[in-house]
Write a protein that binds this DNA or RNA. Structure first.
Lengths: 217, 217
DNA sequence: GATTGTGAAGAGCTTCACAGCT
DNA sequence: AGCTGTGAAGCTCTTCACAATC
């Protein structure tokens, strides 16, 4: 029952979608689900769903579908949601504070164990139950609290330096909200969330749909 | 000099990266850049850069590279950054407020022209210079202010309804921060920004790198 | 010599279609 | 009949490699 086998990034992203749908179905008491149904709820073709789930072995039953409970369990484990991920926040500005207050994180296996900022006026204040610490305490605290994840919510020019500090402190993965490319060694996982980028993408898509074909009337 | 030609999504995403790099190089006074250099600053292979930029025709000069000024101009136009995009916010909670305060938006051609919320206690308050309005005024205000973009920062169960209201009001594109799939007609562009999803992706990637090959020592 | 533009090869992801199981 | 698991086909994106250009 070794899960290994290379799982592609697109598949990984869909796995998250599946997990979310299954979670609500589980609460509704549904017992099993077909690849077709799971697909329609996530915007994925049925064959694709089956291919994605193939890494769990023969989990589905022909004529019936997949047992939601089993699938849910497998996905949670695959995505690492069967454990709690301790995370630290760097940057207690607007975005940082909003993230700390975001209720979904706590519900999904992420736990903020510390928050840091460079600004002397901010240090010492409370945010979401945590006292904001100076950057000098980063390494020590990360080790102590066994944090594996770091969230970067500082201005872009400070982000690269912060990323290195996090890496140095032993963090394994970084969720980066600064609009800049962090060029880190492959063993540090980086996921970027870039608002400006997202808005640009949006403007671009609208632009496209206006240019080609159906010039929106 | 018709730009059309289908531009793929991956290319579009990279175009944003190029634009950002060029923007800072322009300020530094650099005149031209090779595909190789632009590539190394964005994490893209040189051939890929050239393929991406091919849609602008023969903009580069062999032996020299691309004139930054020209390239910058072309990219701005392509990505729709040569105009101002009026945007409205729906949902003035933590995330909504953080977004309004995010300084980068204003600098990059996006302008928030209104903010809405459902909560009677929130309506009427000021946020980033805007008075929060009730949902009932959405359609009228969107038309009046000629808003083309909508940002959804409401809880997931309300998001689908809000999306339809925005569509109904004549919005062309939606930046969705709610962790739920908005199933809208193709003529409405939707870009999702899902924090939980991003964190899950991160946990997953760490998981992968631990399982296969180099079990991080 | 440096660098572009691009056809062709390569890699990766998605969809099809169908045998086989319940 | 309904549905899975999967080989094969199809499609898209990336990388290579090289003639053409400055």
């Amino acid at each position: 029952m070794i899960i290994s086998e290379r799982i592609s990034k697109p598949t990984g992203r869909r796995m998250s979608l599946y997990l979310r749908v299954l979670h609500s179905l589980l609460e509704l008491g549904q017992v099993s689900i077909s690849s077709k149904e799971l697909g329609s709820q996530t915007g994925v073709k049925d064959a694709q769903v089956r291919k994605d789930l193939a890494c769990f072995g023969s989990l589905g039953r022909p004529g019936v579908g997949y047992r939601i409970l089993d699938l849910h369990e497998q996905l949670r484990r695959l995505l690492g949601m069967d454990q709690t991920w301790n995370a630290v926040l760097v940057g207690a500005g607007n975005i940082g504070r909003a993230l700390m207050a975001y209720p979904r994180f706590r519900n999904e296996g992420f736990d903020f164990v510390a928050a840091f900022d460079q600004d002397k006026k901010t240090i010492g204040k409370q945010i979401a139950g945590l006292k904001i610490q100076p950057m000098s305490e980063l390494k020590k605290t990360v080790k102590e609290k066994r944090a594996k994840l770091g969230l970067i919510a500082v201005p872009p020019d400070a982000a690269v330096h912060v990323a290195h500090s996090l890496m140095d402190a032993g963090i394994r993965g970084i969720l980066n909200f600064a609009p800049i490319r962090l060029d880190l060694p492959a063993e540090i996982a980086v996921v970027n969330v870039d608002f400006t980028d997202a808005l640009e993408q949006l403007a671009f898509e609208i632009r496209l749909s206006t240019i080609d074909g159906k010039t929106t009337k």
